[in-house]
């Protein structure tokens, strides 16, 4: 009887396993990581934030999707959406903000946006090409309004500046790094 037992999603070993899987699909845009065995019924978007965030990072939750308890466990500072390093958004709502895009000197300052979608396989197909993709691959996110793809195209127009997207349904996620070229929808 010494330290407290944490819920599974907040244990360091869970974060390590999540990080490995997210890293794998970030290197292979369009591939889908199934996180269901690590989530204990919590959403994959929250798991992604739990993996990425700590008290040195900033997070914006413009739709208020996170509970106070989740924010306490994320142990992350909140910031306006235009200044945050990480953003949680809904795919069903068109983005009405301009995230951090980084600078030519420090493109890593561009935001990472976790977009909650209904599904990663039941929507209109998007054809992806670019680094990490042998020829081309298809991702079919459901519940992602086309305005997101238009906005992303604008944000990523001046590579290496731009944003990286993580699309997450309830149990799975896929990564669209700024290097990925998207056609379709």
């Amino acid at each position: 009887m010494s330290v407290l037992e944490l819920p599974r999603l907040w244990r360091p070993e869970t974060h390590q396993a999540l990080f490995r899987r997210i890293l794998d699909v970030a290197a292979r845009p369009g591939q889908i990581a199934d996180l269901s065995d690590l989530l204990d019924d919590r959403p994959a978007a929250l798991a992604a934030l739990a993996t990425f965030c700590d008290n040195t990072q900033t997070l914006a939750d413009p739709t208020g999707a996170l509970s106070d308890a989740d924010l306490a466990f994320l142990d992350v500072r909140t910031a306006p959406v235009e200044q945050a390093g990480f953003i949680l958004a809904r795919g069903a709502d068109a983005p009405r903000f301009t995230p951090r895009l980084g600078t030519l000197d420090a493109p890593e300052g561009g935001a990472l946006i976790v977009v909650m979608v209904d599904s990663l396989t039941d929507g209109p197909p998007l054809t992806l090409t670019g680094p990490g993709i042998a020829a081309q691959t298809v991702l079919s996110p459901g519940g992602l309004v086309p305005a997101w793809l238009d906005a992303r195209a604008g944000w990523c127009a001046d590579f290496p500046m731009g944003v990286d997207l993580v699309l997450a349904d309830q149990t799975r996620l896929a990564v669209l790094p700024r290097t990925a070229k998207i056609k379709g929808a």
Binding site: V3, L4, L6, W10, A69, A72, F73, D75
Partner: peptide, 9 residues
């Protein structure tokens, strides 16, 4: 019953 409200650090 003891429940953590934030990750112990």
């Amino acid at each position: 019953t003891i429940a953590p409200l934030a990750p112990p650090r």
